[in-house]
Design a protein around this nucleic acid. Structure first.
Lengths: 250, 250
DNA sequence: GTTCGCGCTTGATCTGGGTCAAGGATAGCC
DNA sequence: GGCTATCCTTGACCCAGATCAAGCGCGAAC
């Protein structure tokens, strides 16, 4: 592995299934690939509901989500669970330097991950500064998201919590689809009511009731249980208790 | 600034007031200093209650807490506030790459910070990979702490929340004092009841009631309002709903 | 088609923690 | 000493959301 250098990240260009993520790690790479990387890289796919890693497990890889959605959850002995993160395509999983997983990672939908064996990845990180810099940036983003979520969990009402979750999903969905935020937003909820409840620190009954209430009040429209239309996004933001820009500024 | 290299971190050794932090940034440094650093480094002190930075402010420095305690808080328009982080000596403030502060930073006690002008610090980071690596590690720790806190906020009862907060402060205090965890733990609460409430997503009345209840039940002892004795730490952990080891494993 | 299972909805009731309100303790200051 | 301000405690009451319970809708298996 000692030939690794900045070039290793060029692998991003020929990784057909996970372009977003690797480009995110090193946006400046534009060409080439190195074969060495192949030996530490591999794919794993998971079905919805499958557990990727159990909290406390030895973790011998890091990786990123290629497609689908996973969630990070913490569970108390008596079964109370709290989702502490939502992993979307391009999000990073695992922690360089740590042996054991700190959370359960569960595939919320069918999902594909691109994994790197941990030791070689750590070596690579030492030799290619940009990786640490890029990971730092991503981690800071996650930290901001986690802190924003602390406000949601600690101080918002059930209705505001639901509106906050919907606005986050809607916004992320809209930016992924590149059609921006203009016009009504339409998307499919990637979460069951129970998963929403676990994310929001509520019960699934309360989630269901508040979804019905938001529908009744015209804040959202529902086709079936999962397909959501947001006719007026600023109205939703308002219900979420966020100020107009609705997020952390760059 | 273009002479900066790995050596810049040697400054840690002669920064009498903030050794912990700079040693934390670069534990391997053992000698020397560079004068260049002085030109981007300065100290600021704050009184208890003083605001260090307002959310949204332009932030032209990063830095670390030398002594005292600061808190990161988010506030909604209607005044609901949530503390999203507690900054203890050695903790890092600010985000390289971001222009505006995302949270209010408030001095909870009298506090001294060691600041670096942001631009030069960013340059330094580009040229000295270890800084990014060390910052990544610290940020990952903070992320873990934030996520642990999400479980507290989302799923724990008021009594468990109080016990969780006390156990965190007690543990951190014990490790700082180097006398370890054996015997009864004694410390002073660095937070008012209101600040505790803001951290825990409760009201100050509920905090007060639960403190009284824990005292009545012999889980804690109080001398005055702030001085706390924990006769049996595992009992406290139990009240917090944590499993025995009570934290994230390394 | 029927049955099963799962995800979801809705209703009825209960309760933990919020809200409102009235003091108590302590420290600083004149 | 008394006065004031700040922080804290405690009580009475209330309500948002939890809990318990019943049932709906719909896709999959047979």
């Amino acid at each position: 592995m000692n030939k690794l250098n900045d070039d290793v990240l060029h692998i991003s260009q020929d990784c057909g299934n996970c372009p977003i993520r690797h480009r995110a790690v090193c946006a400046r790479c534009e060409s080439d690939e190195l074969e060495q990387l192949e030996e530490i890289k591999y794919y794993r796919s998971f079905e919805a509901g499958q557990t990727v890693i159990w909290s406390g497990d030895r973790m011998d890889f890091v990786g990123s989500v290629v497609s689908g959605i996973a969630s990070l959850t913490q569970t108390m002995e008596d079964g109370r669970t709290q989702m502490v993160g939502l992993l979307l395509p391009s999000d990073f999983v695992g922690r360089p330097g740590r042996m054991a997983a700190a959370y359960d990672v569960v595939a919320t939908t069918d999902m594909v991950m691109c994994c790197f064996r941990k030791k070689p990845f750590e070596l690579m990180m030492e030799q290619t500064p940009h990786i640490a810099q890029r990971l730092l940036e991503m981690t800071l983003d996650e930290l901001d998201a986690a802190r924003e979520w602390m406000l949601v969990l600690g101080r918002k009402t059930a209705r505001e919590k639901i509106a906050s979750l919907l606005s986050i999903i809607a916004r992320r969905d809209a930016t992924l689809k590149l059609d921006g935020m203009q016009g009504p937003l339409v998307f499919d909820l990637p979460l069951t009511r129970e998963a929403m409840a676990d994310y929001l620190g509520l019960t699934l009954e309360t989630v269901s009731r508040q979804m019905s209430a938001l529908k009744r009040d015209g804040v959202i429209e529902l086709q079936g249980k999962r397909h959501v239309t947001i006719p007026d996004f600023s109205r939703l933001l308002n219900e979420a208790g966020d100020d107009a820009d609705g997020g952390i500024m760059a």
